[in-house]
Write a protein that binds this DNA or RNA. Structure first.
Length: 117
DNA sequence: CTTCTTACA
DNA sequence: TGTAAGTA
């Protein structure tokens, strides 16, 4: 199938699909016309990419994770031990970011509480 | 009509 | 990311 059909079937824009390829997430074949040709497997791949993107991973991280993940009953399951390691690190980074934002919010609260009525 | 690349908001 | 432009 060509990019238009993949876009319709996944709900992902053609723009994003080309971007995923640029990031090495997808490797569609090329027809002599230059048109990209995707396989049935790419439909599933795009869905996996979306799930990982929603989990906050960037394309570089997804590149490492994608080959080590499998779909089971619509649930994404880690398949390699080193992957779980990466995910835990990512989770910790998110935790750190949350703490920093909380601190920033506390500072804002202090300023707001001090306003004149 | 569909896709492609490049470039800009 | 969306979109416009000029093609194939």
């Amino acid at each position: 199938m060509r990019i238009g059909e993949l876009a319709r079937r996944t709900g992902v824009s053609e723009r994003a699909l080309r971007y995923y390829e640029e990031q090495g997430l997808l490797r569609p074949e090329r027809r002599p016309s230059g048109y990209r040709v995707y396989g049935e497997a790419d439909v599933a791949a795009v869905r996996r990419i979306r799930v990982l993107l929603a989990a906050g991973l960037n394309t570089a991280q997804i590149n490492q994770v994608l080959p080590c993940v499998v779909v089971d009953d619509g649930l994404l399951v880690p398949d390699c031990p080193e992957l779980v390691d990466e995910l835990v690190k990512h989770r910790d980074r998110i935790g750190a970011a949350i703490e920093e934002l909380a601190a920033t919010q506390a500072n804002l609260d202090t300023i707001i509480a001090g306003r004149r009525h």
